[in-house]
Design a protein around this nucleic acid. Structure first.
Lengths: 264, 264
DNA sequence: CGCTGCTTTGACTTACGTCAACCCAAGTGG
DNA sequence: CCACTTGGGTTGACGTAAGTCAAAGCAGCG
């Protein structure tokens, strides 16, 4: 790996981490190296099936996917959306078998690497390990917030909340323009994400349109007034933990990792 | 720290990890050291309040607690139950502020340590770091399963499912005897955990009693036929990931950590 | 041009929520 | 020792948000 390549993290994962923590060259090149093996997948293809043995760790480079769980009789719950830059069940890879499936919603570009490399990462780059742990914690926070939605918010609130969440998450990776973004999702999938029936989601979206909060044209959704939509969904920024620097992390790691970084 | 002390992990956390991965003396004593500072709390006391800055990392030694999120208008969702041996929002401690609260349900004994020590742990004991990551992943899996419950299971199924989950989780730490265990929980809390109203939980429990699947006497609950209750709740062992050894983890860490462990 | 997969809408059903009592046990204080 | 409160549990009557069923519209596509 060349030095030049190492300096600019070309990996979405690297870019994501860089956004809240500065990386050493060694770390960057390790990440780039990790994401070297990229595969392409069609729309609606299973990257992982519930009950299957885990294969490799994956990072979403382009496209959308969902993590979902199903009951024996077919009822299904979408646990989370996998957006560009997201890791696909990072920790889950430590498990023997998958307790959920992962399916693409669009054609997707995915980076793959062996789980052993995670262990390697834990040993060689504790800062990266901690950063990824942080990232995993954010995922948990998102799922917990969805649980709050499904358990305690009304259909209208839930739907509004999800739209704002996606808007915010997509903004970070630069996929929103003036409140407009692509939502490559059928109403069935929205229903499964929000614990509603397909018919009810339809009516709820219609209501949001009628109120004038959103516009839907095919897969393009436009949010006219984020503030208002957020307030309908009782959206509280807190859980996304977008605040750039987890100071504690940065501090502690910088201060004491000088030994390891002496070579730079 | 004495050598003798180091050999037997007296910490619940240590015991938990030992159950699926053998620890070196160094690792054990580090864990024991971590849990040295123990505090006691009354029933119904907040260990952490939503919106508050995180203080320290906590491990539940004795007693129950809940992690919960609330909406501005008071509606509340219990995200998870914290049982003896559980870490309280391990990763969350990397965040600036808490997006959820933690409240004890019983008098509790809690071990506390500074978040910096996690960083230390990441640097000095990658195996422990990975083990804790695994443990965090299990927590995420539990929350995801609860999301499936709240989103897609009926009230009866949900309730049955939760009871079986608690039964299984408590068995691991030896708190179940012949299908009987203490459930230090009001119906209001059950309702908030399952996204139901308090009245409806009451009727649902009654139904479970009428069918003869459970017995409730005060805070003692007895499960007569776990198999049947599990089938009512569409309970699938998979998500708890109780399978002892995460082989991959154990393997990878053992094989390559010889350098570090040379001293033993 | 007739699939097939998705959305939309109306009519009706139902699981679950709300309201409002009443019960019971465990304090607690006069 | 007994009133009185307080926090929970239990039950009935009734309301409603959301589900189900069913049919019709509407692309895209071989």
């Amino acid at each position: 790996m060349t030095r030049a390549q190492a300096n600019i993290p070309s990996s979405p994962l690297g870019r994501k981490i860089t956004s809240y923590m500065s990386l050493t060259d060694e770390e960057k090149s390790f990440l780039n190296e990790l994401e070297r093996n990229v595969t392409r997948h069609g729309s609606r293809s299973d990257l992982l099936q519930q009950g299957e043995r885990y294969g490799c760790v994956r990072v979403m480079r382009k496209g959308w996917a969902i993590r979902h769980k199903a009951l024996p009789d077919g009822r299904r719950q979408v646990v989370n959306f996998v957006l560009p830059g997201d890791i696909i069940g990072f920790y889950c890879n430590l498990f023997e078998t998958a307790d959920h499936g992962v399916t693409t919603l669009t054609p997707a570009e995915v980076a793959n690497f062996q789980p052993e490399r995670i262990i390697e990462l834990f040993k060689l780059f504790p800062r990266l390990a901690a950063a990824l742990a942080w990232s995993g914690a954010k995922e948990e926070a998102i799922i917990a917030e969805r649980l709050l939605s499904v358990g305690r918010r009304t259909a209208l609130e839930r739907t509004a909340h999800l739209i704002v969440e996606l808007l915010r998450r997509l903004s970070i990776v630069g996929l929103v323009e003036e409140g407009r973004f692509t939502l490559p999702v059928t109403q069935e999938i929205l229903a499964d994400a929000l614990g509603l029936s397909i018919v009810h989601i339809n009516r709820t979206l219609r209501r949001l349109r009628d109120i004038g909060l959103i516009d839907l044209a095919g897969q393009q959704i436009t949010v006219h007034d984020v503030k208002q939509l957020a307030s309908v969904g009782q959206f509280d920024e807190l859980y996304l933990h977008l605040i750039q620097a987890p100071k504690q992390l940065e501090h502690a790691l910088d201060a004491k990792s000088d030994r390891k970084r002496a070579g730079d």
